[in-house]
Design a protein around this nucleic acid. Structure first.
Lengths: 189, 189
DNA sequence: CACACAATAGTGAACGCTCACTCACTTATT
DNA sequence: AATAAGTGAGTGAGCGTTCACTATTGTGTG
């Protein structure tokens, strides 16, 4: 039998790029097929629907980042080191694969609620790091979800500003350091 | 001649609500007309197209908030007082009219680039407050857009968490205080 | 005060078009 | 020969928009 894995990858890459460029609803199956150099029907050999394609692109990449963040976090001992590691990884993912990052950012409201608590989830990794820090007395007691949201927010909004084309001139390394220091200050550590 | 202002308001409120609930592309003109209790054609007496309706809903509300923030900011002298005033207003707008806030949050990527620098803009108000603070030595020198993004991010993400249904238990007053203090710390003041 | 009028608001069936998706068929691989 | 991948014209549903028509209301005229 034939091997369709290359075709599938072409579909994934093209769809994600177009979804980011034009939006999910504004991208037609024809657009994706044309961009990937395949027939429309071929897409349906790999995904049962456009909606399922969008969902799979989200959940696979989102949980992959969540899983990596969790491993990185577990490998460190102090809250400082954990935060440092996961924020640095966040920045490097954005730099290495901006399209994927953009897509997760764009599709998050649409798909977030469909995630089960069991699936690895970047937000929950940050949350558990902050909770652990508070339990060990490394972070002053405060509302857990507010604190986590503030940290995630300051990171995401800077990345979003880059996406929107505002002048964020620094290279990723410097940016990561800035974001890490800012996170420490927000959490009061 | 007849007065269509009530109809227009019904269109605006219904469209904004449905856009937030289902997304812009996923909301049809039929949906809006049915929700507002009018005929489809009536919408076109008030807006030339669905796209223009979405744009007007964005630009009118976005610039209104921007203008108010700017007045509030100008009425204060210190950077602390300015930040306090605009963050507090941000929180109260969300509380008073969550649908509008949600819509602006949702539609921002789609419409942001169409705004001219002349139109009042919440982001630019925050930016000019931070810039002024750095010019007067109240805020340590740092990258302007990174600093502004971090402050906006920590605020928006907390509001976003509430939208997404995470447990953000506190009332708006307490929340505003927390966000203001966190902003001071991020900016190193 | 009655009446004609102009101007705008409101209507909803109809239109052309694009969409996601299907299916009978062909091609490639084991 | 069996199996899965790839094809693309075809389909019907749903979309945004139009337009000929009706309803309402303020204004000028006698």
């Amino acid at each position: 039998m034939r091997d369709g894995s290359q075709t599938r990858e072409k579909i994934d890459r093209t769809a994600m790029r177009l979804f980011v460029e034009k939006g999910i609803a504004e991208t037609s199956v024809r657009d994706i097929a044309a961009g990937a150099g395949i027939a429309e029907g071929t897409l349906y050999r790999h995904y049962p629907s456009k909606e399922e394609l969008a969902w799979q692109l989200f959940v696979v990449n989102f949980t992959a980042i969540g899983a990596t963040l969790n491993e990185l976090q577990r490998a460190e001992k102090t809250i400082h080191a954990k935060l440092d590691a996961i924020i640095r990884h966040f920045c490097s993912v954005f730099e290495r694969d901006a399209v994927t990052f953009n897509y997760l950012f764009l599709a998050r409201h649409r798909h977030m609620l469909r995630l089960t608590p069991r699936q690895p989830n970047p937000y929950l990794v940050f949350r558990s790091v902050v909770r652990e820090g508070m339990a060990h007395g490394e972070i002053p007691k405060q509302d857990l979800d507010v604190a986590t949201s503030m940290v995630m927010g300051l990171i995401l909004q800077v990345i979003d500003a880059r996406i929107l084309g505002r002048r964020i001139p620094q290279d990723v390394e410097t940016l990561a350091d800035t974001l890490i220091q800012a996170s420490y200050r927000v959490l009061n550590i």
